[in-house]
Amino acid sequence: MGTLVFLAPPIVACIILAGMLSYFGNHILSRGIIFIDIAVAQIAALGTMIGILLGFAESSVGAQIVSYAFTIIVLGIFSVMKVKKQLLPQEAIIGIFYCVALGMALLLAEKIPGGSNYITKTITGNVLWVTWKSVVSCLFMFVPIIILNLLLGKSIRKVTQGEIINNSFGKTRIYDLVFYITFGIVIVKSVPVMGIFLVFILLIGPASISRMFVNSWKSRIIWSWVIGSVGSLAGIYISYTLNISNGPAIVGIIGIATYLAAFARLYSKRSGKEIAATN
């Protein structure tokens, strides 16, 4: 029983996050902006460093506010930069943002004692350290985001599919902005707790598997949630029995499962046409 009490908060956190990220993951895959969460995490880390340089203590409310504000501004620029005639693929713009943000962070790291820690910090992260307190604070942040996305869900989905809302390019951009800002908040909130690769794999892996096999949007999201939760549970179990870190174990399991699913899809008899048609 003791281990179960110990493992309960990380398990609950993984299931909540798997649900949240399954929704965003399906959007991200449809938009083809796979690496946006790694870019957002890097931008948030840069924001924290700016906050520290402005004189706020590390992990103080002030530094966090600067980090959120900075991330939201950059995401705002990103969603406004989408023009009618796309020259560069959006993924390339994400690559540029990521690269420049990381470069800036490296420059600032010279000014902060122990600054290079902030660059490597986002990479690791440990689910086992999750406490009930951080689970509750995540929920507190996620509930308004869930409500907002439920209310605007239909329109946001249309924007994801490349439609223009009410024939107004400006209105479409506003829905886009809501999507990116809520997504940004989820990423900034979850990456320090779970580590960037776990968030990345929960975002992309389950959504990829369900997209290859399931047609309807709603069942894709539900399947992604189920796959993400089962993968997390399996990863935590394996990491516990084999005594390896749990983040990498979950990443490994979901990642390998995605590859197996992709190859299964490749060599399955069923034609891919009916699924491709609904994209």
Binding site: I34, I204, S208, L266, A276
Partner: peptide, 10 residues
């Protein structure tokens, strides 16, 4: 074409 996800995800 059978795999309906972008290669970037893979």
């Amino acid at each position: 074409k059978k795999i309906s996800i972008p290669l970037e995800a893979i």
